[in-house]
């Protein structure tokens, strides 16, 4: 291991003598003095965008809730009409609808619980 380290040191020394280690790169004038401000501007823009997305998401959610409520109101109206046409009362129709929506899994749960 020490031998490897010595070899690395030797090669590194030779490389430094041959090519040096000066920095050949430059930056545009004033780059570092303006960078923090440019980053702050980007952060502020990002925060604004995030706020806008939150508002947009909230608006979509509100729209979904409003649509769902409207559909529910309409559906209860339909139930009322169906009940009147079939001679059932609305509660009986809703019970039938609930029964239709019971999944097989729920039936299995119900049976095993009863046992």
């Amino acid at each position: 291991m020490k031998g490897d380290n010595d070899m690395t040191d030797l090669l590194e020394k030779r490389l430094k003598e041959q090519v040096g280690k000066e920095n050949p790169f430059r930056v545009p004038e004033g780059y570092f003095s303006t960078l923090p401000d440019r980053v702050c501007v980007r952060i502020a823009r990002k925060q604004r965008e995030r706020r806008m997305w939150r508002w947009a998401a909230a608006a979509v959610m509100a729209g979904c809730v409003a649509t769902a409520s409207l559909l529910l109101v309409r559906q209860s109206g339909n139930i009322q009409l169906a009940a009147e046409a079939g001679g059932y009362n609305a509660d009986e129709v809703e019970m039938l609808l609930d029964y239709n929506m019971v999944s097989n899994l729920e039936i299995v749960d119900y049976i095993t619980e009863a046992e």
Partner: peptide, 27 residues
């Protein structure tokens, strides 16, 4: 910023790329 910039610049070579990567790093 300077140490980070030079670390990135030596890897990506080009200034514009280094600037992009550095700003993304800070974000």
């Amino acid at each position: 910023q300077e140490r980070l910039y030079w670390q990135i610049r030596r890897m990506v070579v080009n200034h514009e790329d280094a600037d992009d990567v550095l700003q993304n790093t800070l974000m």
